[in-house]
């Protein structure tokens, strides 16, 4: 294991923070502070934190999954995410966008659109630019399994393969789902593009970190793109409507046992699984764990204070910023 104890604990911290923040967004929704569909999904913590951990902000990342953890790892503050959902002027898109649809090229974050796979070819384009400009960088595109049915996915992945672009595409499979393809092992599709592919347990954070590292090494050696199929063992989707909100975030969403209403699914929940692993290896003490959870809760409380009373998006700039010059 080449990661130190601190780094491993930091990985757990980001998973905890992700979940705490998402729980807070659900609560805001339940309290009618938020009316937009949330589009969140539990179970993605290992993928969003694991995929974003090794690549640095010079490596562009775009995701059409609600990968909150990746944004947090890239330095986006929890209050920025809340302000975005709340449609406030101080939010990253000043109310012009909701959900996780925002980008910041200085952090290597590319905003996706409402469509599931348009960013695959855009990220292929970023990777293409890295290659022709001789930059040691990779581009990551994260998509849910539904994306593989689209033409966008095909065209983007095929271009990246033909041009040997340093692109990593992470396709996330949900449990018991075959929505996107008749091919049950999606990584097998990679053969059709002449791509390398790596299947990985989407609930196992360290496995994800490792396959992304392998894919990055391939990309940087000039061997082109890699398709990673990350299979989730447990995942639930939250649209944020009243009927869907309460159940999913009950118990299952809480890392500490107190207050949780459901039984812990320690083996399949990425955060609990990683927490258990660190405890077993003595890389995390009970005291570390408590302080880590307290730190995440404090970060979310601070964020809630920061967004309290935030001004709505200003209407006087409604028509500005469409073009570089007015």
């Amino acid at each position: 294991m080449r990661f130190g104890k601190r780094q491993l604990q930091e990985l757990l911290y980001y998973m905890v923070l992700t979940r705490r923040l998402e729980e807070t967004l659900v609560r805001l929704h339940r309290d009618n502070e938020l009316t937009t569909p949330l589009g969140l999904r539990t179970g993605l913590e290992a993928i969003s934190v694991g995929a974003a951990f090794v690549p640095t902000p010079k490596d562009a990342l775009a995701s059409s999954l609600p990968t909150v953890g990746a944004l947090l790892l890239r330095g986006v503050k929890p209050e920025q995410i809340m302000l975005q959902f709340l449609g406030k002027e101080a939010g990253p898109s000043h109310g012009r966008e909701g959900l996780l649809h925002f980008g910041d090229l200085s952090r290597g974050l590319v905003a996706t659109t409402g469509h599931v796979a348009t960013h695959v070819s855009v990220m292929a384009g970023m990777a293409f630019a890295y290659r022709v400009r001789n930059q040691e960088r990779v581009a990551l595109a994260l998509v849910p399994e539904e994306a593989v049915a689209t033409g966008d996915f095909h065209e983007g992945v095929n271009f990246a393969a033909v041009q040997k672009c340093p692109l990593i595409v992470v396709v996330v499979r949900y449990p018991l789902s075959r929505e996107g393809s008749e091919v049950t092992q999606l990584y097998e599709r990679a053969k059709g593009y002449g791509l390398a592919s790596l299947p990985v347990d989407g609930s196992d954070l360290l496995q994800i970190v490792q396959v992304v590292e392998t894919a990055m090494a391939r990309a940087q050696a000039g061997d082109g793109p890699t398709l990673i199929e990350a299979v989730l063992r447990s995942s639930r989707r939250y649209f944020g409507n009243e009927s869907a909100v309460p159940a999913p975030f009950k118990g299952a969403a809480r890392l500490d046992s107190d207050g949780g209403e459901g039984a812990k699914d320690v083996d399949n929940d990425p955060a609990w699984r990683f927490e258990k692993f660190l405890l077993q290896q003595d890389w995390l003490s009970e005291a570390d764990r408590a302080s880590l959870i307290a730190r995440a809760e404090e970060a979310v409380s601070d964020a809630l204070r920061a967004v309290d009373g935030a001004a709505p998006a200003k209407t006087d700039r409604l028509t500005e910023g469409l073009y570089a010059s007015p």
């Binding site: 070819s121 384009g125 022709v132 966008d152 271009f159 041009q163």
Partner: peptide
């Protein structure tokens, strides 16, 4: 700098957008 693309208008327009994000 002169790239023959597969027949994939949506895809290579996306590639152009991504390349533009990286300064091309």
């Amino acid at each position: 700098r002169v790239i023959d693309t597969p027949i994939s208008e949506e895809g290579y327009t996306g590639v152009a957008i991504g390349a533009a994000f990286n300064g091309l």
